[in-house]
Amino acid sequence: MDIDFAQMIFAITNFLILLVAMYFLMYKPLKQTMEKRHDKIKSDIETAESLKADADKMKEEISAELAKSRETAQDIINRAQKTADAQKEEIIASARAEADKLVEKANAEIKEEKEKALGEIRDEAATLAISAASKLINQSLDDDAHKKLVDKYIEEAGEVQ
């Protein structure tokens, strides 16, 4: 178990060589890579957090906007409804007025036609009565007597009617 100093120096020297080699070939680049990864993950997380905050803010804005839009839309619908109702009333009223006017006109025309027809019938009846009477009695009457007779007849006809 004695110490051979040459061997000890061999071990120390070689270990120091190994240490330096490992430090520069492995330890340092490995640490750099790990630090780079650490930084990247950190920055990624920060970016994600800020993006999330942005998204949350945007979401809030959008929902506020949506509510406002909904309100406006409701408003528009209400107004349209009102306008439509008013228009409906107006149209119905005008249509009713038109219809009344038409009915009135038709009634007036009917009345006029009736009057006209009655007049014509009256004249026709007088003529017929005269011709029938002249045929029946076969005698000529003076104009006064004639007229009296006709009027009497018409009166009777009117009463019958």
Binding site: A21, L25, M26, P29, T33
Partner: peptide, 22 residues
């Protein structure tokens, strides 16, 4: 053997850090 272990460590180490992939 000492040198062999040294060589193995250095080679393994260099292979290990060669790519530096994230």
């Amino acid at each position: 053997v000492f040198w062999g272990v040294m060589l193995f460590m250095i080679v393994a180490g260099v292979i290990g850090v060669r790519k530096k992939a994230l």
